[in-house]
Design a protein around this nucleic acid. Structure first.
Lengths: 216, 216, 216, 216
DNA sequence: TATGAATGAGTTTTCATTCAT
DNA sequence: GATGAATGAAAACTCATTCAT
């Protein structure tokens, strides 16, 4: 198990670091990657200087949040595979429970600035690939089970589910309810049974690799 | 019928106004509601001063773009109803062809700042309600045709389709292809046939009214 | 004659631009290239915003000041050649009267940051070469006159005179007097008559070209 | 004789103190008195805290470096007088070999901030006067020898030599060579023989006393 | 005593908005 | 009416100095 950067820090420093990451994750998730650094520092209960001591600039902070969240999601995904009775159930649990997915979507899919930063970070790419690999396994298992239609790939599933996570409060109906219904509708679209044939080829995990969009 | 703001302007002034709205619409759609005002002015081929003469501040510009786009979408929706052979086809055409929907989604659903501005604008609310009314008609007609499942409302459909429009470039696969597949998957989820029963009650057009989210 | 950047500006804007350059020149000369931008703006009687509208960042301002000063020095040098009765006199007049030399020395020779900025600016290099070319002519003419020792080049003269301009207030004696005496001592060192043979070869104008120091 | 601050310290503490002064001297000499304190601490191999324990603030550090360097220069000067065969040779050796002179020039003559700090420090003034006193002796001896022109004082010599030490890399010619030639040119200017009469009166050691420039 | 973490004031730079021409 | 210049407040980032461990 690799030692994280937090090892060897003084107790208070380690706590501060944790607070900073927590605050950043929350604020990035709810307000995007452009929230003022001072705001993040304030939420974390530290001075800006402290924030900058740990993360030399905003990009470093964005990277750190993305890395940590992706690692967490990968863990959860693996656990879902192990613990759920079916691949279909694992799929559902993954989207439902992974709070960390929210930030990632917000960073990687809703801000072109953040996307570029992450695209150039090898570790983010690695973790991202790891997550997509697990998702790919789940998808293939679900297809083997006969619960998931055959003409989709992990990429299609990821795209569909990412929509849910871009959710922004919309209406005078509890957001959870809106999301939940949309989720079920999507699952119905994904379910294995005669539906409209999909155009093109399945979008695979390799297709979502953070490379320059449209390159392939 | 109240005269629009463009009546009684000198020819060049009217042209400028049009250019500004066009530029703003484009830039809001592609970069969000925070693009520098100077940038918009430059794209429109006018000085900032001119922009500010027409729209006292950014909020006014956002409102104007939203109003115009919503009016346009309402028109298109009505035309789709008239011209398409089935309600299902009208539904599909609406999402596929309404470029204006893109801006609206970007403004109303992807930026909390813009959302607040629009929430407080009666005219935007009116137009929004008009669009949703047409959508409601289409939805009910499609259900009568038997092409759309019975347990969804116009709100559900709107939410689902809004996802498509939040599309951000993602992968090394042409964005159009990704969207197209997701679209078909969603349509499959919406299609009338025994699927998973949806939790809660249909989300109606009234539910999406721009009131404080979660209030209702 | 090429139109400077100041043509076509509104009268007040042109005045402001002039004030900014003047203030920057003065402050760079007396305090170096790191004086706060706000300070320069205040001295120029404008807001920082105005300063930044003209010069996108500090580097641009430094470049502008250097270019303007070098151009001015080149002019003065040419005039000195024309108007003075002897090359020796032209040499003396050049150092004595060129106030602009002060800033250039301060920027190009006393701050490694500024030196790097200027080294990468082709126009500065061109002007610098032009000035050195005139100095080279003067030097050769003075040697032909028999007033300047034969074993020095324009580079040696430039180095020596640059010392005078690095002058920083030193003592409880009028700075002018100190400089004046040092100047005469240097002139005596340069004068043509049997002196100590100089080590190495004459340092020419090409040697002072702003290329990476020590490269040659 | 008062005990220096280094007496009675623990061995490691004394070593640290030495390292700090060494690092500060080097960095002041090459980058001026504004180098970040952390940088100095890092070079010295200690934490900032340790640096600040020894020197309450930057000014104290500057003073310490100046004092130590001046003391060292005074020693060297006295040794030069004793060991060199002629006053002229002592003069030359002094400039050529005293590395410590570099820092002093950098602090006292190239930074107005540092100059002010040192001007207000009695011990620096004392040491400075001591050095100038030795220089004065050398000058007068050289004049008695007939090797140095009569119309200069220790101040003139100091000013001239200080120029050499302000040397900043300039050209694509080895800096040492440039300096060496300039040095010889200056010596030629100083040499005893009919030259241009110097304006004003000799600048004496008293004139260079660090009092407010221009006061006298 | 040594360390390096935390703080916050100081600078640079950007951009919405106002206003002179 | 149009223009683009001027303004200043806001946000990112750096670093001297203090203080907990």
């Amino acid at each position: 198990m690799a030692a994280g950067p937090e090892v060897g820090l003084r107790a208070d420093a380690r706590r501060n670091l944790g607070q900073i990451l927590l605050a950043a994750r929350r604020m990035f998730a709810e307000a995007g990657p452009d929230v003022p650094m001072e705001e993040i520092a304030r939420q974390a209960g530290v001075g800006v200087g402290t924030l900058y001591r740990r993360f030399p600039d905003r990009e470093a902070l964005i990277r750190a949040v993305a890395r940590e969240s992706l690692a967490n999601v990968a863990d959860e995904a693996r656990r879902a595979v192990e613990e759920e009775p079916s691949a279909w159930a694992a799929l559902i649990r993954l989207v439902r429970h992974s709070q960390r997915l929210q930030v990632i979507v917000r960073l990687a899919l809703m801000s072109s600035r953040a996307r570029e930063i992450l695209r150039d970070d090898p570790e983010t790419q690695r973790s991202c690939r790891a997550v997509l690999a697990v998702l790919g396994e789940i998808v293939r298992a679900a297809q083997d089970e006969g619960t998931l239609r055959e003409d989709v790939g992990a990429g299609d599933v990821a795209v569909l589910f990412s929509f849910l996570l871009k959710q922004t409060p919309v209406a005078n109906v509890p957001a959870a309810s809106v999301t939940e219904r949309a989720f079920v509708l999507m699952l119905d679209g994904l379910r294995a049974r005669p539906g409209t044939p999909l155009p093109g080829r399945p979008i695979t995990e390799e297709d979502l690799d953070f490379r320059q969009p449209g390159e392939g």
